[in-house]
Design a protein around this nucleic acid. Structure first.
Length: 474
RNA sequence: GGCCCCAUCGACUAGCGGUCAGGUCACCGCCCUUUCAAGGCGGCGGCAGGGGUUCGAAUCCCCUUGGGGUCACCA
């Protein structure tokens, strides 16, 4: 049995890094017919954001990553919010104190600052020297009983080494002398990540701890905790990081990290998921377009590459376009377009029309939002006319009245009718097609890039075509 | 700075001792063409450097360099 978890911290926008993590946790669990858990790491009162949890869960749902247990659906290991498990951590912290693996420390934040400075001046590493270790058990108990504020710190060994057995990189050795007496329980009674993650992973039966590489430096602390408790360690997998274009860890300041931002741009969830799947991982046959199920069927850690991956926009957009033009059905595409159209204030006479426009535009937009931006003239007469289009209209002013006459008297604007009529008109005049087509295009759409002219004529219909021509001629 | 991780085209990657180092995005050119796309074809472009090991290294080892992560009562 494999049980994995993703443990987001509800401090803000749903982060693509969380989705990345969740994706691999999910795939690995499902590959092994196991369970995938979502746990909320809300032990930081200062950064807690009340809406964040729901948005993170919604984002995962949107992506199609479904969890087997979590705060919204419950499960055998409930509760799934660390803020609701406080007594657990306190109990285990107490246990460590009694076993001699942890101790209370009573320094105030100001005192800690002073200690840190002092240590730095001496050229020593670390932020705490472990001085509270020397407080006697009696005194410690007494001061705690008096209600004196304190934290609980790990009594890290000062000699020897601790080895992290990372499944992706092999053993990583750390000198214990470099491991600090980290705070396990804060003075507000909340645990730090270090205590919480170990206690919860153990209590929830997590067998495989998959998380970002940024955790490697504190991993020995976690190993030490497992040893102190006498619990078996999970298998550790430290994933490569998602990067900004400048190769630093993906961050809000240097890129778009919110899943909601991509959603609002009209990136499809399957495209985003697919793209995340190709960050550090590849299909055995080299396919670049693949879904969750493909990933589950073909997943193995051997195919993971360890260098971080730049999370870039260009290829994501290309992939999204690929889904739009080759993977989605026309019906599906139209349905997904609707909310974007509505948001932009566009209306359409019926779904058939929307679908026809979508079909005509299909190869010409790569995000749903792009469709809205490029297709306005199909949905309103109030579309802007670009400078270049205006120039084209003037250029072709001589022909437009004749084109109007021609189109007005045609029995229909279907391509089968309009195209031959148009061709012979052009031939008669001894013109090049573009000389007439481009001004006409500009007159009917206000832009110079549109679907084929005859598609446009047919979609707009005679009434709108004539009206727009009249307007342009004036 | 200490500790730790990583290292193939600009980007995403294939490669796991013997390959003309392959594919994709982006970029450039050509074709198609009523425009713009899409699509097809082609091009540009890479094993960071130096030592080893080996008959033979992108592949294994070491050093250097470079990049990154982390050093909180945040996760």
């Amino acid at each position: 049995m494999v049980v994995t978890r993703v443990a987001p911290s509800p401090t803000g926008d749903p982060h693509v890094g969380t989705a990345y993590q969740a994706l691999f946790d999910y795939v690995w669990a499902k590959k092994n017919a196991g369970r995938f858990i979502v746990r909320i790491e809300d032990t930081d009162r200062a950064r807690y954001n009340a809406e964040s949890e729901a948005r993170i869960l919604a984002a995962l749902r949107w992506l199609g990553i479904s969890h087997d247990e979590g705060p919204d659906i419950g499960g055998p290991n409930a509760p799934y919010r660390q803020s609701e498990r406080l007594s657990l951590y306190q109990k285990y912290a107490q246990e460590l104190i009694e076993k001699g693996h942890a101790y209370r420390a009573f320094e105030t934040p100001e005192e800690l600052d002073a200690i840190r400075k002092e240590l730095q001046q001496q050229g020593q590493r670390g932020g705490y020297d472990g001085r509270a270790r020397s407080i006697s058990k009696e005194e410690s108990n007494h001061r705690a009983a008096q209600g004196e504020p304190h934290v609980v710190r790990l009594k890290a060994p000062r000699t020897g080494q601790t080895v992290l057995h990372d499944q992706l990189r092999g053993p990583i050795k750390f000198e214990n002398s470099g491991i600090e007496d980290a705070v396990l329980l804060k003075s507000d009674g909340f645990p730090t990540y270090h205590l919480a993650v170990v206690v919860d992973d153990h209590e929830m039966g997590i067998t495989d701890a998959v998380r970002g590489e940024e955790w490697i430096p504190s991993a020995p602390l976690h190993v030490l905790l497992y040893q102190a408790f006498g619990w078996p360690e999970p298998r550790w997998y430290h994933m490569p990081l998602l990067l900004n274009p400048d190769k630093s860890k993906l961050s809000k300041r240097k890129g778009n990290t919110s899943i909601e931002w991509y959603r609002d741009q009209g990136i499809l969830p399957e495209a985003l998921l697919n793209y995340l799947g190709m960050m550090g991982w590849s299909m055995p046959d080299g396919r670049e377009v693949f879904g969750l199920q493909d990933m589950i069927e073909n997943f193995s850690w051997e195919r993971m590459s360890l260098g971080g991956s730049v999370f870039g926009w260009d290829k994501l957009k290309w992939l999204n376009g690929k889904y739009i033009r080759e993977i989605l059905s026309l019906d599906d595409l139209a349905e997904r377009l609707k909310p974007f159209m509505e948001k932009a204030g566009y209306t359409w006479q019926n779904d058939t029309y929307l679908k026809q426009v979508a079909e005509a535009m299909r190869a010409r937009f790569e995000t749903l939002q792009e469709f809205v931006e490029k297709s306005g003239y199909f949905f309103t007469d109030n579309y802007p006319v670009q400078e270049k289009a205006l120039a084209k209209i003037r250029e072709g002013a001589a022909y437009l009245p004749e084109v109007r006459t021609l189109l007005a008297k045609l029995p229909s604007l279907e391509a089968e009718v309009a195209e031959p009529a148009f061709k012979s008109f052009i031939e008669q005049k001894g013109l090049k097609a573009g000389a007439v087509m481009q001004p006409l295009r500009a007159a009917l759409t206000g832009v110079l890039e549109t679907p084929g002219m005859f598609e446009v004529l047919h979609l707009l219909g005679r009434e709108r075509v004539i009206a727009r021509l009249d307007r342009a001629i004036q």
